[in-house]
Design a protein around this nucleic acid. Sequence first.
DNA 1: GTCTATAGACTGATAGAC
DNA 2: GTCTATCAGTCTATAGAC
Lengths: 212, 212
Amino acid sequence: MAADHTRTAILEAAERLYAARGFADVTMRDIVAAADVNLAAVNYHFGSKDELIAELFVTRGLVTNRERLNELKIAEEAGGGRAELAAIFTALIGPTLRGCLGPEKQRSDAARFMIRASIESVPPIRKIKNREVDHLRRFAAAMRRTLPDHDEADLFWGIHFALAMAHQTVRDSERLGKMSDGACDLTDVAGIVARIVGVSVLALTGRAKLRA
Amino acid sequence: MAADHTRTAILEAAERLYAARGFADVTMRDIVAAADVNLAAVNYHFGSKDELIAELFVTRGLVTNRERLNELKIAEEAGGGRAELAAIFTALIGPTLRGCLGPEKQRSDAARFMIRASIESVPPIRKIKNREVDHLRRFAAAMRRTLPDHDEADLFWGIHFALAMAHQTVRDSERLGKMSDGACDLTDVAGIVARIVGVSVLALTGRAKLRA
DNA sequence: GTCTATAGACTGATAGAC
DNA sequence: GTCTATCAGTCTATAGAC
């Protein structure tokens, strides 16, 4: 009970501080002060600063991944086993973008934390991301069912590019806003998702359609 | 002379070590040991660890940006003031990708350093990237000359997405290789550039052509 | 100006008492 | 499970030698 309280207090304080100020600027002493626990408690419960960050990232990432697979499942059922290509891409990038973009004022600590994780990309987080491969292969499999005759490598490039566009939009929305002088609306999440999905679908099917 | 030697020795050692082991794992003590200079010399010549990293990044980045603008200029001259869209995108992403991808064995320390900068993205580097906006606006201007009637925001989204795909390919080539089980050839730099350029051009012109 | 030796403040991690 | 005390390691700052 008391153990749980300490553990939870650390997690909450860490997420809040990391979300607000980033990983580099927040020390373990900042966290234990905010959580009102002892310094050594972090190492006792999590092992190290990196493992604390990893724990937070895994927890939040699992939620997103579950949403993605859920949307994919719905899309496949709606299509009788073969999901629309656009629906597959939407399932892949929608949950992340909806969580990370949108009106700045109403972003939760969890969302802000995930944005930091995208931007700063510290070692513990990179390690976890490298183990996401199996998860992504499910989307490749869904695409293969929809486009059984399509070149295999193209499908993987399609996933790679869709994630790239989504990720970079979360990461660097500031630069895009500055560069376009406000012409690109970064609060219109649905519009951004549709835009990335549109490009991704076109990249896979466009050349063929243009030839026809 | 002697001043130059110390300064240069620090820069060379830092670039080599950062390229090999990343920013987080290399301390200033590692650098001064490799360069055989005194610890305080780094602060004397560069001010801080962050400013040393920034100096390296700016130097290498200027070379890439010059290549980009040079390619853009050639493309505009070839088209009599209006460059082909594909040539604009190639000028934008080609230099970076040629520098960072390709056979792993023959990558220079400079190339490996820039890959690290893409992946780890420490604070001093992020600051510099945010000031690249003016440079990117030149590509937007070139696109406006080629597509004068096109929606303004679309052009910025096009640049944003092209950079996203290029950047992510440098950043996460490992994951793509694993996910595709080798089906995506990451040593074929020209092919990758062509692929990203193709998607980018299609994203801007595809919908219009499909309607026609 | 260039460089060195040294000291300082801060970090994450840990051993051992409670 | 919690805490105090302390560790070795980090970057930075400065006084002074060359």
